[in-house]
């Protein structure tokens, strides 16, 4: 699952490789670090220290989320987030490689996380921290979402060959991509699915 923020003009902003590497690293490292700081602010003591630590953690998380909006309209994010029918042969190839990498990493993290939860919930062995409240699970949910959006782009940022030689030879119109039409039926289906799930959850409880 990924996401691409299409600009209103259809133009893809120029993001160089170094900035994409830094941005994806900030997102992938910043969110879990910020989350750990914010959720464990109580360890800093009572009152002002806990409040300041909590705010610092939230600030790091906010930086991580805001950084995502830097990469969201980029060419690399377009490759992983755009509709497949809008991509060409090379872009489809890169997308497949990026998703394969992201799948391996996310499934590895999920397996490691479940193993950790199993150990943490086994009271007879170790006493480990485990998420319990809505606040904990909410932080984890948005982290997983952010990772699923960013991991394929991070892979491209570190592995994709440069484009510059082509731009120099054939003109600088590489940034102009066609703007596909909105697929209302698709978004309508998504919204209907979400509403149905919500109503189902309400009726069950």
């Amino acid at each position: 699952m990924s996401f691409y923020l299409r600009t209103s003009s259809g133009r893809v902003p120029n993001r160089n490789r170094a900035s994409m590497r830094i941005a994806t690293s900030v997102i992938l490292a910043g969110y879990p670090i910020g989350g750990l700081i914010a959720l464990n602010a109580g360890l800093a003591g009572d009152g002002a220290p806990a409040f300041i630590t909590g705010i610092a953690g939230l600030a790091v998380m906010a930086l991580s989320v805001l950084t995502f909006f830097y990469i969201a309209p980029s060419y690399m994010q377009r490759i992983v987030g755009e509709q497949v029918c809008e991509l060409d042969d090379l872009e489809r190839d890169l997308r497949q490689k990026a998703f394969t990498f992201a799948y391996q990493v996310l499934t590895g993290l999920a397996a490691a996380g479940i193993f950790y939860l199993a150990v943490a919930n086994d009271q007879t062995r170790l006493t480990l921290w485990a998420p319990q409240s809505y606040e904990h699970w909410n932080t984890i949910f948005w982290g997983v979402l952010l990772y699923s959006f960013t991991l394929p782009t991070a892979y491209l940022a570190w592995t994709m060959p440069d484009l510059e030689p082509d731009l120099a030879e054939d003109g600088a119109d590489a940034g102009q991509m066609s703007k596909p039409r909105m697929r209302w039926w698709f978004w309508g289906l998504m919204a209907a699915g979400g509403l149905f799930g919500f109503l189902l959850a309400l009726s069950i409880t």
Binding site: D89, D93, P161, D166, D170
Partner: peptide
């Protein structure tokens, strides 16, 4: 590269990547 790319329906960067051997075509 652009003329060839337009003729076969890909972005012109794709032709550059192909020529440099950075990627194998479908």
């Amino acid at each position: 590269r652009k003329a060839l790319a337009d003729a076969v329906g890909v972005n012109f960067q794709t032709i550059g990547y192909l020529e440099r051997g950075d990627y194998s075509p479908s």
